[in-house]
């Protein structure tokens, strides 16, 4: 499903969460990056029809999200994993999935049961499918969250920080699962973990203070730090110039990775950037233009 957003604004009382968002997404897996409070969750809640847009245009698969009927149409084709997903402690994953499936309109009970069992298997919950969800671990809750989103084979998946708080293996399993689903669907993934986007998305957008400051290919965002990513050694003090990406203590001194427009020290060598470097270079440029 194509997403076309123009001039989207939304405030909560005096806080303006989105100040004129323009975004176009054309299928596949799409990453949404941005710092805390940038507006990612607000944008996703609007796309999921949970809250109404303030001003601007939001069209998903041709449906207008500013109308009630448009929202309903999108919600029939949507799988949504909220950032802060709540579960009913008294229900088992099997019951919860059955409930969500009914709400999504999967009325044929045999087909519904089959799909629930299939998804329990996909996310690896078959072993605890009959147990009450009270006391489930963070990872188990996330799995239930993903499974419920996949019910009804939605054309659009919106997942808000699905890998937060997962151990590395589990995180990789999850993002691989999501990437595998992006074949015929649109998967919109928000995250703080730049590496997850680097490994799964071709395209990405970066939000800062309620605006899109970058949208385009992941490769181009990586290139934003080309010629400004440096590696250098220093006896102790970190370099004065630029943003330190990493610092590793060695016997000979500390090795720094730095993003800086100018060579931070005479012995610094230019290195190939990663997506994280590109993201940081973009944020650095944005904050300096925003201040200056």
């Amino acid at each position: 499903m194509d997403i076309a957003i123009t001039g989207l604004r939304r405030s909560f009382g005096r806080v303006t969460a989105l100040r004129g968002v323009d975004l176009t997404v054309r299928g596949g897996m799409y990453g949404l990056l941005g710092g805390n409070g940038a507006g990612k969750t607000t944008l996703m809640r609007i796309m999921a029809g949970v809250i109404a847009p303030g001003a601007g245009q939001v069209r998903i698969g041709g449906y207008d999200l500013t109308t009630r009927s448009g929202r309903r149409q999108v919600q029939r084709r949507l799988g949504y994993v909220p950032q802060d997903l709540g579960l009913y402690p008294d229900l088992s994953p099997r019951e919860f999935l059955d409930y969500v499936a009914l709400l999504k309109g999967l009325d044929d009970s045999a087909a519904r049961r089959r799909q629930v069992e299939e998804l329990l298997d996909v996310v690896g919950l078959t072993g605890v499918a009959g147990r009450r969800m009270k006391g489930f671990s963070g990872g188990q809750r996330r799995r239930v969250g993903i499974a419920q989103a996949l019910l009804g084979d939605p054309a659009l998946l919106i997942v808000d920080e699905p890998t937060a708080g997962l151990d590395p293996e589990e995180r990789i399993r999850f993002r691989t699962l999501l990437a595998g689903l992006a074949g015929q669907r649109t998967v919109l993934l928000s995250t703080h973990i730049v590496e997850d986007v680097a490994q799964t998305c071709h395209e990405t957008a970066v939000l800062a203070a309620g605006q899109v400051i970058y949208s385009g290919s992941v490769a181009d965002l990586t290139r934003a730090a080309e010629g400004t990513t440096w590696q250098m050694s220093s006896a102790g003090a970190p370099p004065i110039e630029g943003v330190v990406v990493s610092a590793v203590a060695r016997e000979t001194g500390t090795q720094f990775r730095v993003i800086s427009p100018a060579r931070p020290s005479p012995d610094a060598t230019s290195v190939a950037p990663t997506l994280e470097d590109g993201y940081l270079a973009l944020m650095q440029r944005h904050s300096s233009t925003a201040v200056g």
């Binding site: 809640r45 949970v50 919600q75 909220p82 997903l85 709540g86 579960l87 009913y88 969500v100 999504k104």
Partner: peptide
């Protein structure tokens, strides 16, 4: 309860009004 358990968000994203 749906507010307290934080299930309201998910329910609001489903077709039933």
């Amino acid at each position: 309860r749906d507010r307290r358990l934080r299930t309201a968000e998910l329910l609001a994203s489903m077709p039933p009004g």
